[in-house]
Amino acid sequence: MGLAAAWQLARRGQRVVLLERFEPGHSRGASHGATRNMNNAYEEPHYLDLYDEALDLWRELEETSGERLLTLCGLVTHGDPVHVRGAYEALAARGAAAELIGADEAASRWPGMRFDGEVLVNRDAGRIHAATALQVLAAQAARHGADLRHGHRVTAIEPFEHGIAVRGTDPSGDPFRLVAAGAVVAAGAWSRPLLDGLVDLPRLTVTEEHPAHFQPLPSFTEPGAEDWWPSFNHFRSAEASESARTGAVYGMLTPGEGVKVGFHAVGDEVDPDDRRFRASDISRAALRDYVAEWFPGLDPDTAAEISCTYASTDSGDFVLDRVGRVTVAAGFSGHGFKFTPAIGRVLADAATGRAFPPDPFRLAAH
């Protein structure tokens, strides 16, 4: 989100410095790995508006950079009929490329998967080449003059009458101080300590999540077989799982790594600077059993585990707002990446006073 905001601000002629604590492509936050879901299975108009804008901006970035950032291989959503039907009706009302089909028809189209009830099929969806996307955002921000500084840990943000000062340490451990007209803070799991005393954030629960890649079975690894693996959501009811918190499952193909499968927002609460980088044996077994039940095309014993953080609001909605000279982007709750370039635009508008973010994302809505 910080890279997208830097890109949007710099392309408008603003002088921008981006401070990032870690190295490019690091694995200590939420935005690493090769792929993300390009998922439009939402009912809420503000998310669908943001999705449509993001889709256009991803395509603009593809054209500008010459890099492929999207594979619109489709998205299938099944399970909870209220959610599936609600998302379908919202998409159909907008004229989106969506249809509802039965579980048997879905299984015939995608024999590597099993389905639960009606299936929402979205054709203008699929996956984002996330690692490449971050590289492109950084390159485009720099092309427009943004100064990107890695290895700079921010420790304090101090507003004053005519601006804001940012303090921290550089890669050598020496202190630095920068002064600017304002600051955009998109710090993920570190949002609350950085903004303490500046922004009255809603509760943010930081968890460590552990999806994994699973290898397709031999009959699903023939030439061309990768092309038809869609991205997916499975909204299981509380009655279908041991806990309501394990009700949602998501994933997508990551070419060369396998099919990523993960439970949504089930991880243990953690300090982002003190993580295990390993799921519990119970969690690993639960994911293995889920894959064995719902993915006849995958080998459930081939899990290659990933570790990432979620910073989640109680509602699952994002926090996008401006308080004084501080513009905040937080609480992406495990479903923000696909919206990245559009959120960059929202943050740039807020930081420059052009427009406030949509009301459902503002602090008062939380």
Score class of each variant (00 low, 15 high):
residue 73 C to D: 05
residue 194 L to G: 11
residue 321 D to H: 00
residue 219 S to Y: 00
residue 27 S to Q: 08
residue 126 G to P: 02
residue 54 A to T: 08
residue 31 S to V: 02
residue 323 V to H: 01
residue 101 I to L: 15
residue 56 D to H: 10
residue 56 D to K: 12
residue 65 S to D: 04
residue 38 M to R: 01
residue 98 A to S: 11
residue 296 P to G: 08
residue 338 K to E: 05
residue 100 L to N: 08
residue 259 V to E: 00
residue 363 L to V: 03
residue 315 S to D: 11
residue 120 L to N: 00
residue 225 A to R: 01
residue 148 L to Y: 12
residue 365 A to S: 14
residue 8 Q to P: 00
residue 216 P to A: 04
residue 82 V to G: 13
residue 207 T to D: 09
residue 96 A to G: 07
residue 39 N to S: 03
residue 341 P to V: 10
residue 283 S to R: 13
residue 7 W to G: 07
residue 98 A to N: 08
residue 308 C to F: 14
residue 321 D to F: 00
residue 189 A to L: 02
residue 186 A to N: 14
residue 76 V to D: 00
residue 222 E to V: 11
residue 71 T to G: 01
residue 50 L to Q: 11
residue 18 L to A: 14
residue 49 D to F: 10
residue 330 A to P: 02
residue 131 A to K: 03
residue 208 E to D: 13
residue 158 E to F: 07
residue 67 E to K: 06
residue 111 P to L: 09
residue 270 V to A: 12
residue 139 A to G: 12
residue 211 P to T: 05
residue 365 A to C: 08
residue 38 M to I: 01
residue 312 S to T: 12
residue 352 T to W: 00
residue 91 L to M: 14
residue 60 E to G: 06
residue 214 F to E: 06
residue 263 F to R: 10
residue 302 T to L: 08
residue 50 L to E: 08
residue 294 W to D: 00
residue 80 D to Q: 12
residue 331 G to E: 07
residue 96 A to C: 09
residue 303 A to V: 12
residue 114 R to H: 15
residue 269 E to L: 08
residue 130 A to P: 06
residue 102 G to Q: 04
residue 238 A to R: 14
residue 279 A to M: 14
residue 235 F to D: 02
residue 284 R to V: 11
residue 207 T to Y: 08
residue 219 S to N: 03
residue 11 R to G: 03
residue 256 G to L: 05
residue 147 D to C: 11
residue 191 S to L: 02
residue 320 L to I: 09
residue 223 P to F: 13
residue 161 E to G: 15
residue 241 S to E: 13
residue 182 G to L: 02
residue 183 A to S: 10
residue 64 T to A: 12
residue 326 V to L: 01
residue 200 D to V: 00
residue 205 T to H: 12
residue 297 G to R: 02
residue 128 I to G: 03
residue 194 L to V: 12
residue 152 H to W: 15
residue 217 L to I: 09
residue 60 E to R: 13
residue 122 N to T: 13
residue 29 G to V: 06
